[in-house]
Each structure stands twice: as C-alpha cells, then as structure tokens.
Amino acid sequence: MSQQILASVEKSSLKPAEEIQKFEIGDTVDVHTKILEGEKERIQVFSGIVIARSGSGSKEMFTVRRIVAGEGVERKFPLHSPRIAKIDVKRSAVVRRAKLYYMRNRSGKSARLRERRSEQAGTDSK
C-alpha cells in the first residue's frame, strides 16, 4: 500500500514515457542539458558512453562516461529531470554487462566497444 502511495507521488515528477529517448547500456549518447546563466537559458551537450543505469521511478539515474583531455570524466544524470532537454543515441554497442565499470580501467584501444548495427543484425550473425 505504502509503495503504491509513493509511486503515485513520484508520478507527478516523471516524464511521460514517450518523451524519454530509449537507450541501452553501452550506447554513445549526447545529453542535452538546460543550463541557466543568470536570466538566459542555454543548452549544454555532454556526450559519452552510458555505463550504468540505477534507481527506479523518479529516482532513476544514468551515468555517462567520456574521456576529456586524457582524463576520464563521468557525469550522472537524473533520467526524469526537466533540465534534460534531449538524449540523442549516436551509436550502440555490444555489451554483456548492465554496469560497464570495467571501462574505468581501460584506455585507448582497449576502451573501444564493438558496434551493434541493429537488433536484426545481431540475431542474424548467430
């Protein structure tokens, strides 16, 4: 009962399902975030690989990792945040884990992920 009440409270903070871009772990994405600078609002883009998704309901978060000037940078975004304007999926990859924390120990060539062309292509190759 109490879980249902909490779910109904969270509902008001959720984005409608059709507004949320579907993406998978291992996808390379562009996250467009709205940033307030004084009065003006502008869009900032953070692009990288989605290495984790955690939480549920209004608490769901995803982690995006990229390499900036040779240094790994990770940013965690709330999936339902109104400050996230758009998520663009640029590239999908074949991964076998839900959390790609092993990417933190990789750099250069070994930090590449094999590309997944489409759902269909993946099943055909077997």
């Binding site: 903070s13 209004s58 339902h80």
Partner: peptide, 8 residues
C-alpha cells in the same frame, strides 16, 4: 509516515 522519495 509513508516513506521518502524525491520530486522536482
């Protein structure tokens, strides 16, 4: 008390 969560 029902529990905690977060809203925007």
């Amino acid at each position: 008390k029902i529990g905690m969560t977060q809203v925007y």
